[in-house]
Amino acid sequence: MRIFQSCVALLLACCSLIAMADDQAATQLRKHLDAMNSLQGQFTQTVRDAQGEIQEQSHGDFMLMRPGKFYWNTAEPMPQLLVSNNKNIWLYDPDLETVNVREFSNDLRETPALLLSEDVEKLRKNFTITRKAEGTTEQFTLTPKVTEGLFQQLVLVFGAGQLSEFVIQDSLGQMTRCELSNVKRNQTLPEEKFYFIPPAGTEIIKN
């Protein structure tokens, strides 16, 4: 936009269109998220480096409940459990018999799972949101307004209004794609899933 500083009128017109597009995209995303009080299913997560080479792939199941509650259970190849009850976040490694515990943070840049369970107005405040639609598929791209976070871009993909995948690109160019399957929304989820009680003998590490 700096290149066209001399074209003040054109610049203002473009800014108006961009602001309108962002507002419409945020409104449409809000409709999808407002219709999704809870979500559960299975996931396949693939991590690629900046050159596109697969670094790791994992599978598991998840539960999300807005706002701020999630259960992200990686079963293969290395078991790991991430749980939040909107007050604390637990990261449990059964192989190491350790659990890292820290207070829940409202920093949307920290944990991608939080983005799916947060209030959309917070998303709108912290991200530039654009929308691309093709048939029944909608793709929303969220770019952080503050760039020093853990990731540079988040893409949410909806098919016929249902969240089907999300993609995260970090500051090093690494791409993480989570494809969702057997997804159910607005089911009654057990509250105990969002609170972690360490098994006997587990080392508790508080951050």
Rank of each mutant, 00 (worst) to 15 (best):
Q80A: 14
H59K: 03
D93F: 12
Q51A: 02
K145E: 12
A113D: 13
E110Y: 03
E97S: 13
N126D: 09
D61V: 14
N100K: 11
F43C: 03
Q55H: 01
Q153A: 07
S38L: 04
D22L: 10
S38T: 13
M63N: 08
S38Q: 06
L96T: 00
T46N: 01
S84W: 04
T27F: 07
L114P: 03
L108W: 02
E134F: 06
T111V: 02
L64R: 12
L33A: 01
E110M: 14
L114I: 05
N86K: 10
L33M: 09
L91C: 01
F43H: 03
P112T: 04
C14Q: 05
T44F: 06
L114F: 04
G60F: 01
L39P: 02
T143R: 13
M65G: 09
L115C: 09
G68E: 08
L123Q: 01
V83E: 09
G52P: 02
N73Y: 14
F140V: 02
R30L: 03
E121G: 01
K132A: 03
D119T: 08
A133C: 04
A19Y: 07
D23N: 06
G41Q: 12
A50K: 14
L115A: 08
N126K: 05
F62G: 12
V120M: 00
D107S: 15
M36W: 12
R48K: 15
F70M: 14
T44E: 13
T143A: 08
Q55S: 05
K145N: 10
T130N: 09
Q45N: 12
A25Q: 02
P144W: 10
E138W: 03
F140K: 02
R124A: 14
V83F: 07
K132D: 04
R30C: 04
R66A: 02
F62P: 11
M63D: 05
S117E: 05
S84K: 11
F104E: 05
V99S: 02
L150Y: 12
M78N: 10
P67A: 02
H59Y: 13
A50N: 05
L17G: 05
V47M: 07
M65D: 09
Q139A: 11
F70P: 14
N100Y: 09
V83W: 06
G41T: 12
T137D: 13
A19P: 01
P94W: 11
T136V: 12
Q152Y: 02
I54V: 15
A21G: 07
D95N: 07
T74Q: 13
V101W: 10
C15P: 03
E76D: 14
D61M: 11
L64M: 15
H32N: 10
L114T: 08
K122V: 06
R109Y: 05
D23F: 07
D34M: 10
L115N: 07
